[in-house]
Design a protein around this nucleic acid. Structure first.
Lengths: 283, 283
DNA sequence: CGCAAGTTTGACGCTGCTCAATCACTGTGG
DNA sequence: CCACAGTGATTGAGCAGCGTCAAACTTGCG
């Protein structure tokens, strides 16, 4: 289960000073899991707090500030377009639960998926700077999306420098992922591309506590989406998946992926997760 | 010569308030062009000022602040590695003149070029946050590189909010370019990839005043580099270039590219430069 | 039960890769 | 002034990875 070339390394880049007694990881999880339908705002923001927490260990005060961020919780179904290419969104959307993805389209309808936005991720498109979006953001499945005013996001970063640091580091990671994807699509073959994508998703979702012990997790995409992700055709993706199944590496059906042999899959993909800057178990 | 789908559009996203009498574009150019060898610091910073100027119209004060940034000018030859993968740079490098590029490598030596850094561009890798670099940055040709302390860059942004805005917008554009490259490599065929790359370079360099009226410009890359840029092999790149030449679209020799028919080239590539957010002639 | 969406299969061919040789250009030293 | 080497460009033959098209099958769901 080592997705990292050099596991157990020190992580000097993590900002850990000023940590006041935090809720433990388990407490955090317990509060996160079951989501009944009252007091939604707070609960939606938890995914954001949790995400930021992965980059900078936040104090209770800071966590409180994140939870108090005033947002409008909404629920949208799959295929919902969160941000339209060419438009200039007024709000920042938080994917509180569910999955979103960025993509660009060609005139003839071919499209390339640029990134996946997981729970706790923001659909930021230079909102604070009045930029029009150069790409689409859509949902993969029914998701809880919380809308924040751009000013609110800017404001909390001004008031809490360490939260700002977490935002910046999160952004750095997104960029690193983008770069790895360029390498993936530009240089690796079909088998490696798909395996690599699976490895990455497994690590990222695992970091969010969204994987099971058996190595399985929800991945609400079909083969067409996977094709647009990896720059291949649906037909070819199908054949590659069959090969991976025959090799005993994965099981993938009903929008749920199970990685059966993480080590062999990672080796096959040439996957080294260090670009994801995931730290080990919460100390 | 229209590289833009909808030329002449208003640019509401440009921050133009608070502009105090600026040096005209021509004055600016005149000061920029000939670079004798004294007072280097100031002159090196000019490329940065000019770059920022493309995003936010800076006041003389602000331009002065950029020019006064304390940096160490250096000259490196081609192939010089500015930032090494896995290392944690202490400084931010400014490409004052010349060309740099980012790339990632696979274990077997295959590599993917991720981005080109043109004059005025910064080699930022999350320096301020003590991140290790996940990729290499190298030079394409002998270049003037000025090294700044990360704090100096952070400081000037704190003191001059509009300069900070320019930095952020520059970063947004770099990201937009990355996304367009993903689309390019993932979805377009060889001819389109290469044409698209040429169009982009022409527009970006034109914006910096580094193209000639005849549509030619320095592009210090060989076919192997172009292959690593476009995710193709050298042999195939060679054949595509021949095709483009036979079509009368380009001339490319001696590290100099001339675009002979920009309209046809852009049409062939499916190029729409709006993602570059280049504004029209300086008003 | 029947539709719709998604998956699987087969046949076929093109785009782009591999290997390997040859050619052009440029700078160097005798 | 020329032989030489080194780098980069070009060419050819052969092939395989992946795309295209079209049909059949499977699954989820009302």
């Amino acid at each position: 289960m080592t997705f990292f070339a050099e596991a157990g390394q020190p992580r000097p880049d993590l900002v850990e000073q000023d940590v006041v007694s935090l809720p433990s990881r388990d407490q955090f999880r317990r509060r996160l899991r079951p989501v009944p339908n009252n007091d939604e705002g707070d609960r939606a923001n938890l995914s954001l707090a949790r995400k930021l927490q992965r980059f900078v260990l936040l104090s209770p005060d800071e966590i409180g500030a994140v939870l108090a961020l005033p947002g409008t919780p909404k629920v949208f179904g799959p295929e919902h377009i969160v941000v339209h290419q060419g438009e200039q969104p007024n709000d920042v959307a938080l994917i509180a639960s569910g999955f979103a993805y960025r993509f660009k389209m060609l005139a003839d309808g071919r499209r390339q998926i640029i990134a996946y936005i997981l729970p706790g991720g923001l659909c930021e498109v230079g909102v604070a700077h009045h930029q029009t979006s150069d790409h689409f953001i859509a949902l993969l499945c029914t998701s809880n999306v919380t809308m924040f005013a751009a000013e609110a996001i800017a404001d909390i970063q001004k008031r809490h420098p360490r939260i700002a640091t977490a935002f910046v580091q999160s952004k750095y990671r997104d960029e690193a992922i983008l770069r790895e994807w360029m390498l993936n699509i530009g240089q690796r073959n079909a088998v490696q591309r798909i395996s690599h994508f699976f490895c990455e998703m497994s690590v990222r979702l695992g970091d969010l506590g969204l994987t099971n012990v058996d190595g399985s997790f929800e991945l609400p995409i079909n083969q067409a989406v996977l094709a647009d992700t990896s720059g291949l055709t649906t037909v070819h993706v199908n054949r590659i998946l069959q090969r991976l199944r025959k090799l005993g590496l994965i099981a993938f059906r009903q929008r749920r992926l199970q990685i059966l042999d993480a080590d062999r899959l990672a080796a096959l993909a040439g996957f080294d997760g260090s670009y994801l800057r995931i730290r080990g178990p919460l100390s």
